[in-house]
Structures are given as C-alpha cells and as structure tokens.
Amino acid sequence: MRTDLVSEPGDVSRPNEDFAGVGLPACGQGGCVVVLDGVTPPSAGTGCLHSVPWFTARLGGALTELTVSCRDLTLSEILARAIRRTADAHADTCELSHPRTPQATVALARWSATAVEYLVLSDAALLVRGPDGTVTPLLDDRLARLPRSALATDALVDANLRNKEGGFFTAAADPAVAARAVTGTLPRRDVRALAALTDGATRWTETFREGDWTALFDLLAKEGARSLVERVRELETADRRERAYLGRAKTHDDATAVYVEL
C-alpha cells in the first residue's frame, strides 16, 4: 500500500480547520482514510467555547480509532459514535443546539481483504479507481443541487438548509445525522486506488474546471497531492482580482488530499 497526504491551510495566519488521517490496524490487514473539512464559523459566533480545529481534531481522532478498532460496526454507526463522543466532550460548556456549533464535512473509507466501504457527508469527495482505470466519484451532492438563491446569506442557510430536510447535512453535535450520509460497499477487487479530498482541493475540478475527476485522479497518481494543492493555489491567486470563478468564496481555502494505492 502507498499513501500520499497533504493538508495545507488557506491562510498561514489561521489554523488549518481540515483533518486528515490514515489508519492501519495492528493485524496488518486493511486500513482506513479519514478526511474532515471544518466549517469556518461566522463572525457572529457559534455558541461554543472551542475552535473548529479543536472539533475536527476530536472528531477525526475518534473516527480514526473507531474505524480501525470496531470492524463490526458500519461506517454510519462509527460516525454516530464519534459525533456522540465529541459532543459529550463539550456538552456541559457549550450551546450544541446552535446552528453553527463546530461542524465538518466527512469523507471516510475503510478497506479489508474483501471489501471497500465508504461514507461521504456534504461536499468532501471520495474518488475510486478500478482495475480498468475508470475513476468513479462518490459524492453527497445535496449542497450542489440547491439553488444559488437559497444560499445567498448565512442567515438563510442556517434557518432553512443547514442540517435540515431538503437542505444538506454536516457532522456537528447530533449523532442522527450519520444516517443521512451517502454510504456503500465495493468489492476490494474493484478498487485499485482511492482519493479523499476536501472542497479546497477539489476546486481544481469543481471550481476552476481544469479537468474532470479522472484528470484530477491522474494528477494525484502521477505528480502527488502536493502538486494538486500547488496548482489550486496558482489558480486561486490568478483569479483574485476578477473572481470570475471564486465569486463570494474565500480566495484560499484549506486544502487536503489523501491518495492511497491498495
């Protein structure tokens, strides 16, 4: 197995809100990849004493440990337990019902000798390559399918869409959200390699349209995760003035990419 992992903050003056981890069980068989993209909070606050990096570190650490050690649980059950464990760590001090309580998107994969399981929540991405070279994106596209008018302001999103039916879901403080994730299982023989990415890295395809998912996967496989992030940074910088592609989005977003050859 070969792995390549890069996680870079969008702004060196701010902590990286992403989390990435690769877990290998002591038995030496199988493994897991965990990628979280912490949701940057609004200036109005979150009702929580803790930062988004605190949250993603707690949730990501729990996911990595549980995914490796609890192979009898489904990935949805693991996500629910990890959310509960993280919520319990600050339930006595923070307002966890706040719509902007610390939260994150999730891309999670686990493999054994026979199967590859996956879970995606919100706009993180998982890509898998089969023996014939075909690249398949495994996505939760609920956010992408919403009309832009519904996303015009943070207030509209929080009131009508965030972690609500008809909107989109993130991992925050409610374990029940785990049941809303996109999940599935593939035969191990059908997966030669996989990639997990936050939307700061998928900008290369989804925002700047430099290539499709297959082209992005080829870039990761041939040049590495560092090259993908560097190319995204170059595109973001070039678009800084015109904002033809970025629109209202921040110029540089935290970017994380994990590539694994099984």
Rank of each mutant, 00 (worst) to 15 (best):
Y259Q: 03
H252C: 05
A87P: 12
H252K: 03
T3V: 14
A125H: 12
G60M: 05
D218A: 14
L73R: 10
L220P: 02
A20M: 11
L121N: 12
L126H: 11
V182Q: 08
G21A: 14
S97L: 14
V157P: 04
L79G: 01
Y245H: 13
R162L: 15
G130F: 10
D123L: 00
L246F: 14
R192S: 10
R203T: 09
A201N: 02
T134F: 09
V177G: 00
R110A: 09
L75Q: 00
P137A: 06
C27E: 12
G166R: 04
K164V: 13
L49P: 07
L194N: 09
L235S: 01
P42N: 06
R2H: 10
A109S: 10
T202W: 10
D4E: 01
T101N: 11
H252G: 00
G224D: 01
L75M: 08
R142E: 06
R110Y: 06
R189H: 10
A44Y: 13
V120D: 03
S227L: 07
A152W: 14
A44C: 11
A195P: 03
T237R: 15
R188M: 13
G45D: 01
L127N: 03
V68Q: 12
W213N: 10
R110W: 11
R14M: 13
D239K: 02
H90G: 08
L75N: 08
T170C: 12
E206W: 02
A113F: 15
L139E: 04
E17C: 10
V232R: 03
Q29E: 11
G224W: 05
T56K: 08
V35Y: 06
R243K: 06
T101K: 12
A57S: 05
G60D: 00
R240V: 14
